[in-house]
């Protein structure tokens, strides 16, 4: 009786994973298919779509654009996120909940509204020309909540008296941060960097509204979807992006959920 019910849930778990990953795995699968059409039966193995991909200059330009947005965005979001997380976990702040709520708002507003709101403000009201800068601004807004979440849980996870002990032993707030806080939150910082990088690198809608002439990779992919003859290239590119995102996020999650070196004492 008991044994059987365990079996059912386990079966469901496996089915769930299969359902989750199945559709995504089709992209890499068909990216090696020697046919212009994404359909069964397989016509044969080829890497020509990958060859075509690396020769596509528009694609490479989009890749460069994406990187030049995602890297600074991840750094800035993580730096701001760290300051914010420290302020929220280490000080008794009036209005703490309101601030946390405000930071999390971009997570619950449809991205399309963030996109148009930023577009109206930057382009029409303040007449800022659309560029990779405007994309980066939008991406910082959506990366901040992730960064703050990851770093808050990391900072809450370690004993506050470690920092107090350092101050007590004569170090200033600044050197305490670098000698104690930073080494202990480092896994969280790396995790946040990777998450923000991936979130920015893969983000489409806000980039769609806010990029001017220089398309980022997802915007480039979107523009290619209209042309059936370009689809195999998109498959090859998409497979690469999926694999990259998968690796980065897996590392980030591993770091984030990995053990915190502080042991909890019986005292509190």
């Amino acid at each position: 009786m008991r044994r059987r019910s365990i079996g059912w849930l386990e079966l469901y778990g496996l089915l769930f994973i299969a359902l989750l990953y199945g559709p995504m795995l089709l992209l890499p699968l068909f990216s090696f298919n020697d046919s212009l059409y994404i359909a069964f039966p397989f016509k044969g193995f080829t890497v020509k779509w990958y060859e075509a991909m690396v020769q596509d200059s528009a694609l490479l330009a989009a890749l460069r654009n994406s990187l030049s947005v995602a890297i600074p965005v991840s750094i800035v979001s993580t730096a701001f996120g760290l300051l914010t997380a420290k302020a929220l976990t280490r000080f008794r702040l009036p209005g703490r909940r309101a601030i946390v709520g405000l930071i999390m708002v971009p997570l619950v507003i449809p991205f399309i509204i963030l996109g148009i709101a930023l577009l109206t403000t930057l382009r029409k009201t303040f007449d800022v020309p659309l560029s990779l800068w405007t994309v980066a601004a939008g991406h910082i807004l959506i990366c901040l909540p992730f960064s703050v979440m990851v770093l808050i849980s990391r900072l809450e996870g370690f004993d506050r008296s470690l920092e107090e002990a350092s101050l007590d032993l004569g170090e200033s707030a600044w050197s305490t941060f670098w000698r104690i806080t930073f080494p202990i939150v480092l896994p969280g910082v790396v995790s946040s960097l990777l998450m923000c990088f991936t979130a920015s690198f893969d983000e489409f809608l806000i980039a769609f509204f806010l990029s001017g002439d220089g398309a980022t990779l997802p915007v480039f992919i979107w523009s290619q979807l209209r042309f059936p003859q370009k689809l195999p290239n998109v498959l090859a590119l998409g497979s690469c992006i999926l694999v990259l995102s998968f690796l980065l996020i897996a590392i980030a999650e591993k770091l984030r959920r990995g053990g915190i070196p502080t042991e909890k004492h019986s005292g509190f």
Binding site: A165, D168, S172
Partner: peptide, 30 residues
Amino acid sequence: VPPNARPTNMVFQSYAIFPHLTVAQNIAYG
């Protein structure tokens, strides 16, 4: 006077031994 400039030192209830430093580095910290 901030804590780092006071002529006081503290033994914390949780002891607050820095987990990423060795015992010797902990003692040498101040």
